[in-house]
Amino acid sequence: MTTITMTVNGKERSGKAEGRTLLVDFLRTEMGLTGTHVGCDTSQCGCCVVHVNGESVKACATFVSGMDGAEVTTIEGMANDDGSLGVMQASFKEHHGLQCGFCTPGMIMSATDLLANNPSPSEDEIRTWLKGNICRCTGYHNIVKSVQAAAATMAGAREAAE
């Protein structure tokens, strides 16, 4: 067991890990952040997606050893400072982009990273990007709508700021 220290959702946190401990298990058990889920064991489903140093990664396929000093953001860190829902979170709620909610955290983390890289993606680009996130409930229809709407909201906010 070694002690790993990282910045999680803006706060410095430490926890114990074995060499084989995965980031997702570290977050769920050591940090108590159970919003990040495990839906498969082959890195296909994306229920575990978090941001590490600003990029989306699958926390089920990432060893936590060697992550000392990393900056990690999970779904619990996606709300605004005042506690209100972040743009992507609010958009999923508004457009019924979730049903059982299990894939949702990973879906939101992944979609947020998409818009950081490509602020106005086409429907095709959204669908292609989300191939690493499986949803069994929605048929993706309303997830795509949620991401499109979030992109429009963010574009509106950028325009207003300029």
């Binding site: 159970t34 919003g35 619990e76 829902l85 979170q89 609010a90 909610g101 299990f102």
Partner: peptide, 20 residues
């Protein structure tokens, strides 16, 4: 009506069995 259960799910506050 927009779903009242969604706030906990989009914030990672859902409580599934493995979270217990």
């Amino acid at each position: 009506v927009k779903r009242s259960e969604d706030v906990r799910f989009v914030t990672g506050n859902g409580k599934y069995t493995d979270d217990i």
